[in-house]
Design a protein around this nucleic acid. Structure first.
Lengths: 189, 189
DNA sequence: TTTAAAATTAAGCACATGCTCAATTTTATA
DNA sequence: TATAAAATTGAGCATGTGCTTAATTTTAAA
């Protein structure tokens, strides 16, 4: 176990907390260092600048949020159910997951002028990723008819909002997944 | 029309934009002043400090989010539907409403150590406000059975998440309200 | 037109910020 | 044990921050 890698990981964990609490611009490199219990100079030994810490966290988040499009296309309804179930389980059991969820949402609302960040966020747009899958589900009659983009917004907006609430107030009771499914599955099934 | 009041209103409008974009700590009083086209000294002629600008915006937001509990208790299902319809209409037509919606959500995730802010946010917890109304709806058989807090989280999480998406990408097509209602209305109706 | 009040500016203070860098300590290898 | 590499510190720079204050301009009432 490389000691340098451990430190870097520690910095990333601490930075995630501070970024969530104070936002990108409100987060000072000194505070990250202080909360990690080291001098601020050390932070810049591991990261070239503040932006690169932010960027590295975003990369981790994007990786975590990726969906398996192929498997999803095979069974849209089943896959959506499984994805929600997995998300809710992680929200209950893995604090890091919840934090990352909220962080990635904050990132989308914060303007940081950096081309690499912008392009990364493009690929992290969950709603866009899911539209073809929703469409396939509609074609099969599993999902209700109507504007598929709207359906996407409904279901992923809901997941986002619920996750936010869960992270903000950890003892929040998560809703049943079939309640959420009722929002988009076909009525005539 | 008082000139001073106009200026103050202008400051609040500009501040709302910057707070949303950069968060409380990332927002500088100089930037607010610059975007309003005046010197930064003038800002402190109208507001005693940065925190008080933030606080005043929160007060406006809390006022806007208030619900009519009495009317809601009379017809829970109808009132919820009407509330959502109204919210979506405002999101489509009134940019200020959408901004305020997102701002109030950000406020809840940002730690600003100020007793007045904390107590104001307590009263702005939409989820908590709605629990008794959901309960009443369940008693009448209008809403489905189950943990009423969970139901609250589901429906208001969804509204929050959808509103966020709408503000971030304004041409987002909003889902149909009856889709959202399907999440919580009784199946046997 | 005079004059008091209100609006506005610009300079500036004390402190926080991102980041650098030379110096020091710790670690691991030979 | 000697030594090179890696980890870590702490002072310091230029610039940005919240906020004050005296001076100036604009406004409006007498």
């Amino acid at each position: 176990m490389d000691k340098g890698d451990e430190r870097k990981k520690q910095f990333l964990q601490v930075a995630l907390d501070v970024f969530i609490e104070k936002g990108y611009y409100g987060t000072s490199t000194r505070e990250i260092a202080r909360k990690a219990g080291v001098s601020s100079g050390l932070l810049f030994h591991y990261f070239s600048n503040k932006e690169s810490i932010y960027l590295e966290l975003i990369k981790i988040g994007v990786e975590e949020m990726k969906i398996n499009t192929e498997r999803a296309m095979e069974a849209p309804c089943k896959y959506l159910f499984q994805t929600m179930k997995n998300t809710f389980e992680q929200l209950e059991n893995n604090p890091f997951f919840g934090k990352m969820f909220v962080f990635m949402d904050n990132v989308q609302h914060t303007a940081v002028n950096e081309k690499e960040i912008e392009s990364l966020l493009e690929s992290a747009d969950i709603c866009k990723q899911w539209i073809p899958i929703i469409l396939e589900g509609q074609r099969r009659g599993e999902f209700r008819e109507g504007n598929s983009h709207s359906l996407c917004v409904a279901i992923f907006g809901a997941i986002q909002g619920i996750a936010q609430e869960k992270v903000r107030i950890p003892n929040t009771p998560l809703p049943r997944i079939d309640w959420l499914m009722d929002m988009i599955v076909s009525r005539t099934q």
